[in-house]
Design a binder for these strands. Structure first.
Lengths: 251, 251
DNA sequence: AAACCTCGGTCGACAATGTCGAACGGTCGG
DNA sequence: CCGACCGTTCGACATTGTCGACCGAGGTTT
């Protein structure tokens, strides 16, 4: 059903570009005839998925998507089961908690609990984080061979001096994740920040997501520069609890 | 482009039903052949807009929609311009602030600032509120004749004893809104709650949204049971400020 | 001020594409 | 064990989306 696929590609393009795009730019990016692109755009506008700036004639994402997106949150079982455990984990660890699931070669944040007592934070439910530079991403990569294989074909973007950018380093890290049953990340995504995450398993023991905490490196690490063991245990306990709620038998 | 329209109808259906639906149910609701519905569903699944429960075979909304929805928030000019004024309004009024825009005969909440000092609230960005039972909705209806005409063909749902359910009462209320330049609502949506809202105007003075506060009726009303004048002024000032930011010349 | 370019939008002919209904195989309930 | 129901597959048909050339408006350059 190629017209729907093309429509989806247009929406993804508009979401990535973070701005307004014209018919010509869209048709060019997707290698479509201008007329074809125009037809799809007009239909998407009709259903409210995109809006057109009356002044410039350019297109941007539409309001109907916001409602669909939050409706997804209501239905998402991973999120609804994890929500209580996430609050508890935030209270025990004193750090911000996130729950993520893979999407388009990134980690989609489906839930986010702010760090207790710190009010100036922005909610990043719906944002996409890199797979190779976050603890949640490493967990998902470690337990999903397809995901790891897909990433190996792409270039590993560097965010800080400590980001793992070579496939060899990443492969080694993922093996450690599988052995340990959890993942850590120290200043590989944001300088001064570290994170810890563990896998959430669904029905048959399959990893469907990850739960993790993130915060200032000095709070997350012990004297030897490793992730604080007590925090690791909090995260692993939370992950196991959520997995149990989801029906994963013996994890 | 009917296949895209049908795909959008399926997504709306899944968002409304707040649960998983089977191929048969979807095909029935939309009066499609089962085979046709299946084709669209499989494509939507391919692009991540829906997911299929492996156990029951039923379909639900997918993760890609969450990212698109939050991407919409990033590009929405109404929201980005209003965000600072909304914080100020919340601080001055001491109440929760919402910004809304019309969508599918409802009010879509595009921004929400919690009431200061009260932490136990749920973020309802992305939710849909009724047009006829909220102050924001009345504002949008008062300044958009098409919207009001569309609602007149539908039944007015009753939420509390005070909800306006007759077209005559609503028409009268909307006339008052236009005359006063703001709208109030007292226990018409949720018992014990009241709200005040004012219109936000875009470029040519056209009303593109509404900003309002909502809270416990005893805090929102003066001795005579009317919306507290000082709060009304705070809301109107905020609405004017946002309108100015959006380029509305002399409002 | 006139010529030019770029942009979003329109149109009509062609065929690729999505539609439909019937048939298949699985599971669940009686 | 039978029957009903479900998601899925398949192939023939024609509807529907695709394409590229053309149009007119707005802005820029000459």
């Amino acid at each position: 059903m190629q017209s729907i696929e093309r429509a989806a590609a247009i929406l993804r393009l508009l979401a990535r570009g973070s701005g307004r795009l014209g018919v010509g730019e869209i048709a060019n990016s997707l290698e479509l005839a201008k007329g074809t692109a125009h037809g799809i755009l007009r239909t998407l506008q009709g259903v409210g998925f995109i809006e057109q700036d009356t002044a410039t004639g350019k297109y941007q994402l539409g309001a109907a998507l916001l409602h669909l997106g939050t409706s997804y949150l209501d239905v998402n079982e991973l999120r609804s089961r994890a929500i209580n455990w996430a609050d508890a984990l935030a209270a025990r660890s004193g750090e911000a908690v996130r729950i993520g699931t893979p999407l388009e070669g990134k980690v989609l944040v489906v839930h986010h609990v702010f760090r207790p007592d710190d009010t100036l934070q922005t909610l990043d439910v719906g944002s996409l984080l890199p797979l190779h530079a976050t603890a949640m991403g490493k967990v998902l990569l470690g337990y999903d061979a397809d995901l790891a294989a897909a990433l190996r074909r792409a270039e590993l973007e560097s965010f800080t001096r400590r980001t793992l950018v070579t496939p060899a380093a990443l492969t080694r890290a993922l093996a450690e994740v599988r052995e340990a049953g959890w993942a850590g990340e120290i200043q590989e995504y944001i300088a001064g920040q570290a994170s810890i995450a563990a896998p959430i398993r669904g029905h048959g023991g399959l990893v469907v997501g990850a739960i993790g905490i993130a915060g200032a490196a000095e709070r997350m690490l012990d004297g030897k520069g490793h992730p604080e063991p007590s925090l690791v245990n909090y995260v692993r306990d939370a992950a196991r609890a959520v997995s149990r709620d989801l029906g994963a038998a013996r994890w």
